[in-house]
Amino acid sequence: MRRLLLLAFLGGCQGVLTGPPVWQQPPTEPPVDPHPTTPVTELAPFEPAPLRPRLLLSHQYVNAVRARRATCW
């Protein structure tokens, strides 16, 4: 949740989520990410992300084609 608040703050800073853009109201402190000092056990329980099909990257594609040619075909 703290991370969410941070993201909301930074997002607001970006003029994307909420609040005025940073150049109108600069933050008084540099961004501080509380996450590294938060023990794992205090973080929210895991929620998995959506599974989505992913196109092979170009080097993966090249290697996949090459692997078929070299080892199997």
């Binding site: 991370r3 969410l4 993201l7 996450h35 590294p36 938060t38 794992v40 973080l43 929210a44 329980p45 895991f46 929620e47 998995p48 992300a49 959506p50 989505r52 992913r54």
Partner: peptide, 17 residues
């Protein structure tokens, strides 16, 4: 995994770190 890590993934990622 091909996505920007979501808040719900903070816990396992922190554990990995």
């Amino acid at each position: 995994v091909g996505h920007v890590d979501l808040p719900g993934e903070a816990r396992p990622l922190k554990a990995a770190a």
